[in-house]
Design a binder for these strands. Structure first.
Length: 604
RNA sequence: GACCUCGUAGCUCAGUUGGAUAGAGCAACUGCCUUCUAAGCAGUAGGUCACAGGUUCGAAUCCUGUCGGGGUCACCA
């Protein structure tokens, strides 16, 4: 079944051709949903056609309206308001949609079109350092990445979630050094850490900053050094640089400490991924890949794609692209961050031969990825066309920016615990927990709390910076995850109740005039849009589109629920129709939330 | 300084490739549970779409400039 908009575009283009003998591409016909204050379902915008000299807008609209009524079976009537041709569909069109989709589950092609079948997409996200705990920013990243994975899965793609650990380098050495100095013998299992190795590492990292501060203070005050000199010459800085060299030389003791401490972070992060219901299929490690681009650089130099500067540095001149000369191998022979990215990109393609490859990384790295993708294109990589940087904005707090050095970060897991606790409080307060045991209450609170948090992060356009208000993020009313979850539980409740009432399926011969209450029709129209919303959201890598759509459906359902008796309607066919609509709503909401990584309860 | 990006109701955000009278939620006020879950529904109030020009049948949307927020401009990651 073609989407209505496509059908109408084609029919309109054809009508214009037969009547005016003017050829217009169907995709140039502007069609939109009719605004609420006007009569109609879809509207053709006539103004753009005036440039083909077909007459005045009202004339064209009248003519096309008449022709469309004849050629498109489901167009019942039309009205012309200025340059807009409003089309009203036969109620049968909407009923047909409900009849043919009643009782479908999430594996139905309506929810899971297979247009991406045989294609692969790789999504890299989270990409944490191993020297501090995941924070609020990572949560936004995680939710975006996971949603993109699931959107493409729903389109039939083989969708692969991967995560690149930045597990080596000077920052890691800082935590290691501080542990040696101040945390000897302390492990995640020590009393104050309750198994949370990421917190221990984070504390080490902060401790290093303190050590450095103290040493710098000493050097500036007693030896009269400048701040820069002091930072360079502080004993702890000398020590970590030494440590980095030892690491690179494979010093067993250093490597062992490194592996142990990273292990603490992996364990903690894995627990968080698990709690968020996020599953990475593949982990990459910087420690395996950090030199992997060097060969590519030399190879490119041979092919004259890269050049050697007078000072010996190898890189690529991008001034013709209005960018700078980008160094990829330093004059001392070492590689830079982007060199590693070249190697990693090849590695990914070797592993998966994907058509599309997405990097979910904050917008501060836009320039980096612009250059990286351009270089890969110039290197003629087969996968270069499928690269996409899903760039997202910062998450700010009401108190200002998060800064790890100032301790104003919000740690991911603390936040998760908090939203769950608040959800629990609210649930109990509302008296919704009657008949539930403690375990069930906790399970529900988790679904609601995390649902609120996840939805809060996903409803905002990824491109934009957002403000994270902790109070708002645990809200259960209004434009929130729990609001949508609640609408779902209503559909579930109706379904349970239906068993007692012998609701027959809706049949095509059932009367239609009466089943088109306004709030009923609005809901059906919203449900109908699901596949095109999914496509838009996937094509633009924007889960917010789906998040806002789910809210719209939930709102429409709540109005429908309020206005129309579902199981207790006057006529059996009314109940049948409404029950079918209710069920399709339930599945749609469940599917949308699932793509957003949000669970639904069956009652709340 | 150069480049990128954002600026919509008191606050947080929607607003399709330019289309009709710019929409939600929160906060405030008012109604609605004897009925499938009121974590809901309905209503009131709230706007110079930062500002100034331009493009055109038509601009929150496109162009130019100004102001303001954020970001990036490494042989850092």
């Amino acid at each position: 079944m073609l989407p209505v908009i496509t059908v109408l575009q084609q029919a309109t283009a054809k009508a214009i051709y037969t009547h005016y003998n003017v050829e217009i591409s169907p995709s140039d016909i502007q069609i939109q949903e009719t605004r609420k204050d006007f009569e109609g379902d879809y509207t053709i915008v006539i103004f753009p056609l005036t440039k083909h000299k077909l007459g005045s807008p009202p004339q064209i609209a009248e003519t096309l309206g008449t022709l469309l009524k004849e050629s498109v079976p489901f167009v019942q009537s039309c009205s012309v308001v200025q340059g807009f041709l409003n089309l009203t569909f036969e109620n049968n069109f909407w009923k047909e949609f409900i009849v043919s989709h009643q009782g479908i589950d999430l594996s139905h092609s309506f929810f899971s079109p297979d247009e991406g079948k045989g294609k692969k997409i790789l999504v890299e996200f989270c990409s944490p350092n191993t020297n501090k705990p995941l924070h609020l920013g990572h949560l936004r990243n995680l939710m975006l990445g996971e949603s993109v994975v699931r959107m493409y899965q729903s389109l039939g793609y083989r969708s692969i979630a991967c995560c690149l650990y930045n597990d080596r380098g000077i920052a890691i050495c800082k935590s290691m050094y501080a542990w040696q100095k101040q945390f000897q013998g302390i492990t995640p299992d020590s009393e104050s850490y309750a198994g949370k190795g990421d917190k221990l590492i984070g504390d080490c990292y902060v401790a290093f900053s303190r050590i450095l501060e103290a040493e710098v203070k000493l050097l500036t005050e007693e030896k009269g050094m400048t701040k820069e000199e002091a930072e360079k010459n502080a004993p702890c800085m000398i020590a970590i640089n030494e440590m980095l060299i030892q690491w690179e030389n494979g010093d067993p003791a250093i490597r062992e400490l490194w592996a142990t401490m990273n292990g603490w972070v992996y364990k903690a992060n894995n627990r968080i991924y698990e709690r968020l219901n996020i599953h990475f299929e593949k982990f990459y490690f910087e420690s395996d890949l950090y030199e992997s681009g060097r060969d590519i650089a030399y190879e490119a130099l041979e092919k004259n794609i890269f050049t050697k500067r007078e000072d010996g540095a190898i890189g690529i001149d991008l001034t013709s692209e209005k960018l700078d000369f980008k160094v990829l191998v330093r004059s001392n022979g070492t590689t830079v961050y982007m060199t590693q990215d070249l190697g990693t990109a090849d590695q990914k393609y070797d592993d998966f031969q994907q058509e599309k490859s997405v990097y979910v990384v904050g917008n501060e790295q836009e320039y980096h990825f612009k250059v990286l993708f351009l270089i890969l294109k110039k290197l003629n990589r087969a996968y270069a066309e499928g690269l996409f940087h899903l760039s997202y904005g910062m998450v700010n707090l009401p108190t200002g920016k998060m800064k790890s050095r100032e301790g104003t970060t919000v740690e991911a897991e603390d936040l998760m615990d908090e939203v769950i606790a608040v959800a629990k409080e609210n649930t109990i307060e509302l008296g919704k927990t009657e008949g539930m045991n403690e375990k069930e209450i906790d399970a529900l609170s988790t679904i609601l709390g995390l649902g609120a948090l996840k939805y809060f992060l996903l409803k905002v356009d990824p491109a934009k910076n957002m403000l994270f208000d902790p109070k708002e993020s645990v809200d259960l009313h209004g434009h929130t995850g729990p609001f949508i979850q609640y609408a779902y539980t209503r559909t579930a409740s109706v379904k349970r109740e239906a068993v007692n009432r012998n609701i027959a399926p809706l049949a095509m011969m059932d009367k239609v005039e009466e089943i088109m209450h306004e709030s009923e029709k609005n809901l059906i129209k919203s449900l109908y849009k699901y596949p095109s919303v999914l496509r838009d959201a996937a094509n633009t890598y924007n889960p917010a589109l789906l998040a806002n759509y789910a809210y719209e459906v939930a709102k429409d359902y709540n109005r429908f629920y309020h206005d129309c008796k579902i199981l207790m309607a006057d006529k059996p066919y009314l109940s049948a129709a409404r029950f079918a609509i209710s069920n399709l709503t339930g599945q749609t909401l469940k599917k949308c939330l699932d793509i957003l990584g949000i669970d639904v309860p069956e009652r709340m």
